[in-house]
């Protein structure tokens, strides 16, 4: 199993400091707070959660687009976070990213040709003629044509722009792509086209995806394993089918039950959470979900639950599945 991991994330932390003026202490926001997971070669691993849970920050941090506070990200056995920056830059041909907003992620002053040429030029791949051929090929693969080469992004619709963004990410034949909400800014009728494209490219190029999304129906459709994040922490990880069939953590249960029905006659037993997501700068003590949890117990307010095996390849952090006494003693010893 271990050898099968393409990317391994260990104890990754990303804290932001917010200064509140000269004489006040700095506020620390734990956007990503000590998370670990691994992504296997060829799979699609999903990070799900609501806005502000740290899923996008995780994606950016593990590609070193922002600096991590602590932890390591091992890619093919090498820790990306401790490599010198020049090494990381050349490694980027293997690690790519697809962004959420197809309007913001393409330079408005560059033509499609220039946008797609850039990765090839930067990593010095192929001769000039081969580059042109490569660009034309990739455009056809993502469903555009050479007629578009000299156009600017503003001449395209959102879906077409996202195809360009995807073409830019796959043109270097990467092994690993972080897709940060790649379809959530698109029209419904175009979303399915882009999902199909991502699925097809994965097969064709043998890609591994980290798929960041808040849309559970898309996650259920196209991913292999899922990690659920809440306030900077992973609260549950499982194989996709298992997670949707048998969610263990109360937050995951609520999240899945909150998805709108797919047919008006469908009756769904819904766990409607009370209250809002707490401020990440001032998270609750103990289990960070206890303020909204319908099953909260006394222990949840004081002691943070650890991730525990709750099934085959299925872990969750919730006191419902731990022996409370042991945990308590454990905590006392450690404190």
């Amino acid at each position: 199993m271990e050898d099968n991991n393409l990317v391994e994330i260990k104890n990754l932390k990303k804290y932001y400091e917010i200064s509140r003026g000269l004489f006040k202490s700095k506020l620390i926001v734990k956007a990503v707070d000590d998370i670990s997971f691994s992504i296997r070669t060829g799979e699609t691993f999903a990070l799900v959660g609501e806005s502000g849970c740290g899923k996008s920050t995780t994606g950016k941090t593990l590609l070193r687009l922002t600096d991590a506070t602590a932890g390591e990200v091992k890619y093919k056995g090498e820790n990306i976070l401790s490599l010198p920056y020049d090494k990381v830059r050349s490694l980027r041909s293997e690690l790519q990213m697809v962004f959420q907003d197809p309007y913001a992620s393409l330079n408005p002053k560059m033509t499609i040709k220039q946008i797609l040429m850039e990765p090839l030029r930067v990593h010095n791949k192929f001769t000039p003629e081969e580059r042109m051929q490569k660009i034309v090929d990739i455009l056809e693969i993502v469903g555009l044509s050479k007629a578009h080469l000299n156009r600017y992004p503003s001449e395209f619709s959102g879906g077409q722009r996202q195809r360009i963004g995807i073409a830019r990410a796959v043109i270097l034949n990467p092994d690993f792509i972080v897709a940060d909400e790649p379809v959530s800014a698109l029209d419904v009728s175009v979303q399915s086209q882009v999902i199909n494209l991502l699925l097809r490219l994965q097969k064709e190029f043998g890609l591994t995806y980290l798929f960041i999304s808040h849309d559970l129906s898309v996650v259920e459709h196209m991913t292999d394993r899922v990690a659920v994040m809440y306030l900077g922490k992973i609260v549950e990880t499982a194989a996709t089918e298992e997670l949707f069939a048998d969610p263990k953590h109360p937050y995951t249960q609520a999240l899945i039950s909150a998805v709108p029905v797919s047919h008006p006659s469908e009756e769904r037993e819904r766990i409607v959470l009370t209250g809002d997501v707490p401020n990440p700068a001032n998270p609750p003590s103990g289990c960070s979900f206890h303020t909204r949890c319908p099953f909260a117990m006394d222990i949840c307010k004081t002691i943070e639950p650890k991730l525990k095996q709750v099934g085959n390849d299925h872990i969750a952090s919730c006191h419902l599945y731990t022996e409370h006494k042991e945990e308590k003693e454990d905590a006392i010893i450690h404190s």
Partner: peptide
């Protein structure tokens, strides 16, 4: 975001300045 995208592609700082910021 397109600047982040350029960094993610591996474009150097100087090139980002010349090709993405200046235009």
């Amino acid at each position: 975001e397109f600047i982040t995208a350029a960094i993610a592609t591996g474009v150097s700082k100087f090139e980002i300045l010349v090709r993405h910021i200046l235009p």
